[in-house]
Design a binder for these strands. Structure first.
Lengths: 200, 200
DNA sequence: CATCAATATGAACCTAGGTTCAGTATAGAC
DNA sequence: GTCTATACTGAACCTAGGTTCATATTGATG
């Protein structure tokens, strides 16, 4: 909500030092990698080591582990929002909404596999996204996709964004690829008007 | 698997003392309640207190916390197996297999809500059921239910026990009742031959 | 009832991992 | 080049929670 191009009146707050900016980036990158690879249980020590930085520096940038994880999660949510908006763009350019929606669902599930730890982290630590903007962006885009699919008569009229979230949140990300594929095949028809006929 | 009515040849192993038996029961009961109510993170201290016993006694009966949790999980699995077999019994008595199977699915999901912590415990601690017998019982019964439903033409021919497990494991047990109900409504038709038509 | 092995007790122990902070280095301003 | 606020370092601290073990009880046996 911070509008720029306007000198802050109180608290001059000089610009952060160059090395601080550099380190912050390294920390976020390392945290993302470590949490993705080894789960949210990775120690702060390990994240610090991966970032080539001391533990204390982690705490200079993020007052608590939860905050660090929240930052990583925020990046994840932003990526999902981007994906949803891109898919919506394709639909507006003529693509079928159902296809885009289910493909989007598939991509998110697959991404959640790599980022499974991130998701788990969010639940485990109760990390609150400091900024719901990206979450809202994703919601809006998905809603538009659903609407488009319903207008085209492909998506069941009572499907909502909540339904998509509900399915996302229950994706078996800790199962092998075959199981995930099977799950998608079982669940996807729940969204369409044509359901799942015998022999499908 | 221990057959009784037959004196153990080696290792006479006198019968356990009466109070030991009593305490073991109290511990299992208390552990079930505590884990169900407060999650698998409950301290051994709290479980011990709830059982009216000292921590050391917990460790006399269960060498490790994981073992205690495993015992609780085993009880849970046994209950599910009983449920599945009862449902199968009703089918053999003339009930429709699809109905029994979906009702069973619903019951397990609802039970998982109360026992959510138990499920979580199993994953978190990697608790291995010491005895797969009950798990097998459940699997056999569910397989029979599926088969019956397929013979009746109601359940999709390619549905397997794994599918049921897959759906069980992805049930949104941490969501409010309405969301759970919605989830069931979305997922159930994935099993049937008639899918989900518009207006359903 | 005497005896003892099984059992119970619970304070102390140990480890892991998040967090702190006094000391040191350095970017940026003058 | 000097100076200082900002940033970095990493050993030490602290807490939580699982586990142990010396000591006290108690059920069973003869």
């Amino acid at each position: 909500m911070q509008v720029e191009g306007q000198a802050p009146p109180v608290t001059p707050a000089r610009a952060p030092r160059a090395d601080a900016v550099r380190n912050r980036k390294k920390i976020l990158a390392a945290a993302g990698e470590q949490i993705t690879a080894h789960g949210p249980e990775v120690g702060m020590d390990e994240i610090a080591a991966a970032a080539g930085v001391a533990v204390g520096t982690l705490y200079r940038h993020f007052p608590t582990k939860t905050d660090l994880v929240a930052a990583v999660v925020a990046a994840y949510v932003a990526r999902v929002a981007d994906d949803a908006e891109t898919a919506l763009g394709r639909v507006e350019a003529g693509a079928r909404a159902v296809d885009e929606l289910t493909a989007f669902l598939g991509r998110v599930v697959e991404a959640s596999v790599t980022d499974r730890a991130v998701k788990a982290a969010a639940q485990t630590l109760g990390a609150e996204p400091g900024d719901r903007a990206d979450e809202d962006r994703a919601g809006v885009a998905v809603a538009a996709l659903i609407r488009a699919g319903q207008d085209a008569g492909d998506i069941h009229p009572d499907v909502t964004v909540s339904d998509i979230y509900l399915l996302f949140s229950t994706a078996p990300t800790d199962q092998p690829p075959a199981a995930r594929a099977r799950w998608l095949a079982l669940v996807t028809p729940a969204l369409t008007t044509w359901g799942r006929q015998a022999g499908n």
